[in-house]
Nucleic acid binder design. Sequence first.
DNA 1: CACGGTATTGAACACCGTTCATTAATGTTG
DNA 2: CAACATTAATGAACGGTGTTCAATACCGTG
Lengths: 202, 202
Amino acid sequence: MARRNQHSKEELRAMAIEALADLVEREGVDNFSVRQIAGKLGYTPGMLYHLFVNLDDLILHLNAQTLDALNARIDQAAGHGDPMAVLKAMAFEYLRLAREHTALWQLVFSHRMANQAPVPDWYVDRTRHMFEQVEVQLKDWVPAADQRQRQVMARTLWGSVHGICLLHVENKLNVAGDVAPEAMLESLLDHYLSSCAREGEK
Amino acid sequence: MARRNQHSKEELRAMAIEALADLVEREGVDNFSVRQIAGKLGYTPGMLYHLFVNLDDLILHLNAQTLDALNARIDQAAGHGDPMAVLKAMAFEYLRLAREHTALWQLVFSHRMANQAPVPDWYVDRTRHMFEQVEVQLKDWVPAADQRQRQVMARTLWGSVHGICLLHVENKLNVAGDVAPEAMLESLLDHYLSSCAREGEK
DNA sequence: CACGGTATTGAACACCGTTCATTAATGTTG
DNA sequence: CAACATTAATGAACGGTGTTCAATACCGTG
């Protein structure tokens, strides 16, 4: 009962991540198990522990993949246009992924490390990337602001964008007449950024 | 082994909610179980199912209690001052609860109904209350805006406040130099609200 | 005191993540 | 080609989970 397949360890890792992604997208954020993942691959549960240190580790790898997709979209949006247009495009890409791959997106932001194991660097790097891209745009938008101020603005803005997308995705907004999340992102960026710019001028 | 205590069903329900609250605050959002809750009360697990339809139901009741505390603070903040000051006070109260009772606050916003059982009305009412209080303030702040616009603004603003508090509480902000969440809330409200007011004037 | 009603039990069920000695297939050597 | 060493994979076990439900032990009433 050994070496039934000719897959390399790296191939198997990729297959396991893909199996988990499939499962999550099909059945929802909290409806998967080690046994189901292994089953999809045609293996027994224990085998997965030769590929990943535990389930958290596997989830982390899938989340990294999702963050890569998110960053790719954001980088693409950064391409051209004035900062306002670029930041809007970025926010809309953020929302688009949250919409089109809701469960994967939720997994990224809802997953908490079970043990208090520290989040690995290669994971933190991917989340930092987003904030940096926002800061780059703010450098153009409010040239008068110093780095510290831009840091506050970038976090404020992106925390806000995140909150809006989150409430939408979790259906926590359908109290008393729903509002399209696009309208909310538009409102946020228009008003927040225009006021920041005005302050920078004076 | 029956009727060992003289507690009414309603008393027992309150005790169970309190036991869960204790457990969550002490051990974290995802570190409790039916058996632990029952143990704290000196009962067996099965007994809890005569008080609540299931664990989700119990959690929902605790969350309602937390939302009541949140609403009480927000109502108190609504007392006096100009809308800008009141909204800032509200946002800071939101953050304060998130800080002081992090686990309870997380439980409110991280809990997803296991079965797709609909969220009961008495729960939705409590979340609506918050948005309504924000809208009331906006009525004073941007009198020119119609109800629809205020609805968008209230959701945009409160979704943003929520996002900022969330990222803080989940420690997702300590990438590259941390920023105090107070500064972020201040930045958000100052800029977003001042721009909204300006647009209302013209 | 006996009875009926009910509050509570405790065992069972089907799952969960994780560990690890054992097994079976491979690659290597004599 | 046979014997051995290596390693991929197993499968059983452990201690946990939420939930159900027949049986039970207690209580107030008649």
